[in-house]
Design a protein around this nucleic acid. Structure first.
Length: 438
RNA sequence: GUGCCUAUGGUGUAAUGGUUAGCACUGAGGUUUGUGGAACCUCCAGCACGGGUUCGAAUCCCGUUAGGCACCCCA
């Protein structure tokens, strides 16, 4: 006896049967279509990277515990990419003198994280990455958010279903350091606390908050609980010049409004990755109470290329995952919910040629080849089954038309083209087939 | 890493602790060697694994494994 192999896919990764692949292709199609409308070019990279690429940016702990890292036969440490941005930064840094700025690039990589899989989070997922390099002004943020908005609409959400939340890292730095006078360690703690505000019980939030801020906690809480941007601003200490973060947020909200995007709000609790972003950060949120969550996240990261010892290049970008895209499109109706069928809905084959009598096989194969040269997508049923089964089989594959080849057709050259939706059959010569397809 | 839940043919499911574990779909074959989606018939195929309780376990208990969900984390 031997142990039978499991047919399960590896934990946290997915198989894409044709029906799943059709959905995946549709999502990727939406992504490509929109970003290319904005002039973005596609790039790619290997899923393998030296582990150092991620160590430099994050910490050993994250690399060791949350990535797939192994040693290759040449004793090099290799990591399956957990995100695309370091690869992108590496590629741009390597050719920084040859590239033409502003640079608009996108990619749809698969990314790997070693985590416990759960709803909306797997060990492998595909993520659209959209980045613009070399634009210092907030026009970069506006363009990137505009793209994120377009994609969200294309998922099937209307403006009232979601909101775009923006904040600025420099504003938060200003508040934690200058207004409350925290050192770097305490500032980070506070940032983390702000990020978790909605998850924690108010008492726990206050407990930790007081630990960091002492009696300044009330002032902090008032600031954090501001209803809107104006109120928030008015509660900040007045300075001679308006803070750059405030100025940026205001300009972005106004700029997007000019483009007809009005569901943008300032969110003082929005943090996102601490060491990564240098300016504006944003998230697109699904407001549906059933699955309140982030659809996209992104922001400005002007310092990343300095990892490679080069000058800074300003950058703004965001990422969008395929798992959430699929969930949303099912929820908001732009794709049907899974029905468990294996076959794809619309077949990629135009005609199935059925063979009646094995002696007619070579005629059928010649016909298939001839039709392919004319541009049709033709499959031949080689099963040798009864013609009824062959037709039934084509129907199950959602192939729209069949042609049966038997003695009669071989003798006369007249083909009976059967439409599997309506069931009617039309007699025609080979040359006439293009009339009924496309 | 922690907690909770779940585990019956390929899929979806049924079975007060008591017959040979039932049904539907799928698959293979047939009624029907030239026309599908219908009907009927036959066949393939299952209690995740290991212990325990019991006269008797798919069913109750324990452990293991796997999966889901949540926490942690989310670069």
């Amino acid at each position: 006896m031997f142990n039978k192999l499991s047919t399960e896919s590896y934990k946290g990764v997915r198989d894409f049967y044709p029906a799943d692949m059709a959905i995946q292709k549709k999502i990727f199609g939406i992504w490509r279509n929109i970003v290319e409308k904005y002039g973005y070019e596609e790039y790619g990279a290997s899923i393998l990277e030296p582990a150092d690429l991620y160590r430099a940016k994050t910490g050993d702990e994250i690399v060791n515990e949350q990535t797939y890292t192994f040693t290759d036969r040449g004793d090099r440490e290799v990591t399956l990419r957990p995100e695309m941005t370091p690869s992108l930064a590496r590629m741009i840094a390597g050719r920084r003198r040859e590239l033409i700025y502003p640079l608009r690039w996108y990619s749809i990589p698969n990314l790997f994280r070693y985590e416990q899989p759960q709803r909306g989070r797997l060990r492998e997922h595909w993520q659209l990455n959209v980045d613009i390099f070399g634009v210092d002004s907030i026009n970069a943020e506006i363009e990137i958010i505009n793209i994120a908005y377009d994609i969200t609409r294309m998922y099937g959400l209307s403006d009232t279903d979601f909101e775009i939340r923006v904040n600025d890292r420099r504003l938060m730095d200003y508040i934690t350091r200058d207004v409350f006078g925290l050192d770097e360690v305490q500032a980070k703690k506070l940032a983390k606390l702000i990020d978790k505000k909605d998850k924690l019980q108010p008492q726990n939030f206050e407990l930790v908050g007081r630990e960091i801020l002492g009696d300044k906690f009330e002032q902090f809480l008032t600031l954090l609980n501001s209803e809107n941007f104006e109120e928030f601003t008015s509660r900040l200490p007045q300075t001679k010049e308006e803070h750059i973060g405030l100025k940026n947020i205001k300009a972005i909200i106004a700029g997007l409004e000019k483009l007809g995007i009005t569901n943008v709000i300032f969110d003082q609790t929005l943090m996102r990755g601490f060491d990564y972003y240098t300016g504006i950060v944003f998230e697109v949120y699904d407001k549906n109470p059933a699955n309140r969550r982030s659809i996209f996240g992104g922001g400005r990261y002007d310092d990343l290329l300095s990892l490679f010892g080069n000058d800074k290049i300003s950058a703004v970008g965001f990422g969008a995952g395929d798992v959430i895209a699929k969930d949303l499109m099912e929820t908001y109706g732009s794709i049907p919910k899974e029905d468990g069928s294996i076959a794809q809905k619309g077949s990629s084959t135009d005609i199935m040629i059925c063979i009646v009598g094995i002696e007619n096989t070579s005629y059928a194969l010649d016909l298939a080849q001839s039709l392919r040269l004319k541009g049709f997508r033709i499959a031949v049923d080689l099963s040798g089954k009864k013609v009824g089964d062959q037709i039934s089989n084509a129907g199950k594959r959602n192939i729209p038309k069949v042609i049966c080849i038997g003695d009669e057709e071989v003798k006369t050259g007249k083909l009976r083209v059967k439409d599997l939706d309506g069931g009617e059959e039309v007699m025609m010569m080979e040359e006439e087939i293009q009339k009924i397809i496309k």
